[in-house]
């Protein structure tokens, strides 16, 4: 069991965005979180990764309680994430961007006087990730000048550069064309194998992607766990199909 959460509850004012959600993620799993807008998917990711504190409930990472630990500490323990909206460092080049993650993982950010340019280890590891994500050719391009798809890819790549044991991706393919989505997903899966990431949790809307890549699917609705199971089990679950996918959409696909 790499990640375990029990009875997570989170309010925004009066609104209960997360209403007693429990889940378990095993090593080696690729889990997708699905649900209609406002189901609490992003809140779940934000609570699991320490960006938000839950009002109730507990989170365990490899059986160690991590409830209330901030993102920086979770990073050290081996948990990484990406955001729904693209988060980049606009003025940093692609390679510098990835170096931030490598420097952070190696704990070298506190080195005030050593030369970054001469640090072969940091350079090599950042370049390796750039190559995995097909960004090596653009390594000297400032992030702000990349096309939208590459920005998203770089954002996700930097989380991979942390070499986490588990990674939580909040819509890694949002804002990308359907054709590109599969390319990105293939890159993510192969990169996670190369880097040695044990488990992936992703929030995703595109059901083709969800069914195509997941080992297990967790469906949320109005802050509660609606269902969970294998892609085949979820496909057969009429309640999930109705609330999450929508009947018409489903008919169109079939």
């Amino acid at each position: 069991m790499i990640l375990r959460a029990r009875g997570l509850r989170r309010y925004f004012g009066e609104f209960c965005a997360l209403d007693g959600v429990s889940l378990e993620i095993r090593e080696g799993e690729f889990v997708s979180v699905v649900g209609p807008n406002g189901a609490g998917k992003s809140t779940l990711i934000n609570v699991l990764t320490g960006l938000l504190k839950p009002n109730a409930g507990r989170v365990f990472f490899k059986e160690r309680e991590i409830t209330g630990l901030g993102p920086v500490k979770l990073c050290r323990l081996g948990m990484a994430r990406s955001f729904q909206l693209v988060h980049i460092f606009p003025e940093l080049t692609v390679l510098e961007f990835l170096k931030v993650a490598v420097v952070s993982r190696l704990g070298r950010g506190g080195r005030l006087f050593s030369s970054l340019a001469r640090d072969r280890e940091v350079h090599g590891q950042a370049l390796e990730v750039a190559e995995l994500f097909g960004l090596a050719e653009k390594q000297t391009t400032p992030a702000k000048h990349l096309p939208q798809g590459d920005k998203k890819l770089l954002d996700v790549a930097s989380a991979f550069a942390l070499q986490p044991q588990i990674i939580l991706l909040d819509e890694p393919t949002s804002g990308v064309s359907t054709r590109e989505k599969h390319t990105i997903m293939d890159i993510l899966v192969s990169a996670s194998k190369r880097i040695g990431i044990k488990s992936i949790i992703q929030v995703e809307h595109d059901m083709d992607i969800v069914f195509g890549y997941s080992d297990r699917i967790i469906a949320l609705h109005q802050g509660k766990l609606l269902a969970e199971g294998t892609p085949d089990a979820i496909k057969a679950n009429e309640v999930v199909v109705n609330t999450v996918v929508g009947k018409k959409e489903w008919a169109r696909r079939a």
Binding site: P71, R81, H87, F89, S158
Partner: peptide
């Protein structure tokens, strides 16, 4: 480098463990 990352996007820097 970490300072420049913080300047550009503190949330992202934090999520990378800075």
């Amino acid at each position: 480098l970490c300072l420049r990352a913080i300047r550009d996007n503190p949330d992202k820097a934090q999520s990378l463990g800075v």
